[in-house]
Design a protein around this nucleic acid. Structure first.
Lengths: 240, 240
DNA sequence: CGTCTCTTTGAAGCTAGTCAACTCTCGTGG
DNA sequence: CCACGAGAGTTGACTAGCTTCAAAGAGACG
């Protein structure tokens, strides 16, 4: 763990705007670099943390793609989100000092470890960091409101359209295509997130393809008509 | 606004354990009392804040009952939560400096106003307050995970059972009965929260009553068999 | 090259939604 | 004080949309 543990330098990280506050002095940046002292690699299928594990740190995703999920006692589970580079994961653990969901890597991934106690300490001294932490948590709350709206009031086609648009939008913000994406998750995981069965997800993909809205080949999706997808979300009747 | 604006004193508030950190020195308590300088009354049906309004403060509910809801462009809306005394409301506003949902009083209510800038300032100095704020936000995130699980994977009876149990549990923590409650919201609002239509909510109430699990008379509900309600949530088949 | 997982597609079934009629409660005003 | 009306809730009949069950096809990987 000497040569392998690369010294992380947030100040040079190309994800800085995504996971760090802006407008810091170099002295403040140094202190953050110091806090984020280690990285951790997770293999595809591996867990960053699991429900019940002690909470020690938040994680900023450097590379890779995660899902988080919660489970009922009787074994059903619900994917609560998909996270990509620059996003923060682990906020659920603060309230009870233990994690209440699983975070699983959907492809080989690497995260920056931010020990929570150090983060608290440092955000008392760096106002911008304090505010940033609050914003990250607030953003997660607002995101979940959106998912509740989706699960509570949308039909299958609207849900999938919203899901696809959300994904490409986030990927686009990271420099990827606005119209093409590779799904890192299975139909079942998409279904769990959207409150649908995998067959329904598959059928809906096929219908979108028939309608000429997207092209689907396994996990490769190309969006042909963004506007039509948009309009499906905002109008009751799901475009014929 | 002189005689009416009663000086709020958190240190004497009987909701203290619900909305404030514990183990503060009296000097720290004084500073918090000072931050929470005002209260605000909201009439039944009135809004504490609305989607799009500038965010300035968080609110601790002193008395009364609120719902929060988000809306789509085409007019559908989704109740995202019901809040009661001791709970904190307004966290959604931090990320974009404006609120992204409506907070409506379901009965005459009173809230303590906590200006956010002061809260940030003070939580830099009082570690327990800083941690408390983080916990409140984390708790909200975890709560929403639970709602997503409910909306994404439960059937109507399970949803309503979970809803009722959650309500009485929170009311019980505030000194009310474990088995009796008065609903402050309409069937439609319950339905919106649970992703069901009001008719389905009504039918499910009737079914529970027929099964002898609860007694329902309008908004007055008495739980006759808590254990049976519990078991409905944890087992696939919804008890006959 | 065979096995395993993921995905697609079809057919049948069921849950919750829709539409509609009726009842109940409560507040208001004659 | 009672009648009336509005809003909320209940119930029935019918329907739409998603799930379930089943079987077969497509890649991925040892």
């Amino acid at each position: 763990m000497t040569a392998n543990t690369i010294k992380v330098v947030c100040s040079n990280c190309n994800l800085r705007e995504l996971c760090m506050p802006v407008g810091l002095s170099s002295e403040q940046m140094d202190r953050i670099d110091e806090m984020v002292a280690t990285r951790r690699k997770i293999k595809r299928g591996g867990a960053l943390f699991r429900n019940g594990e002690a909470f020690t740190s938040l994680y900023a995703i450097r590379t890779g793609f995660f899902k988080t999920s919660v489970a009922t006692e009787d074994g059903r589970d619900q994917v609560t989100g998909f996270q990509m580079a620059g996003e923060i994961i682990g906020l659920d653990g603060i309230v009870n000092d233990q994690h209440s969901c699983d975070a699983i890597a959907l492809e080989d991934a690497e995260v920056c470890v931010m020990p929570y106690s150090k983060l608290e300490e440092l955000s008392r001294e760096v106002n911008a960091l304090q505010h940033h932490v609050h914003k990250v948590m607030s953003r997660e709350i607002v995101r979940e409101h959106g998912v509740m709206l989706l699960l509570g009031s949308m039909r299958a086609e609207e849900r999938l359209a919203a899901f696809l648009l959300n994904l490409v939008q986030r990927l686009h913000a990271r420099g990827f295509s606005q119209s093409e994406l590779i799904l890192r998750m299975t139909r079942e995981e998409i279904g769990s997130y959207l409150g649908l069965k995998l067959e329904t997800v598959s059928r809906t993909f096929s219908k979108f393809a028939d309608d000429g809205v997207i092209e689907v080949k396994q996990r490769h999706v190309r969006i042909l008509d963004t506007h039509k997808l948009q309009s499906m979300i905002n109008s009751q009747q799901c475009a014929a």
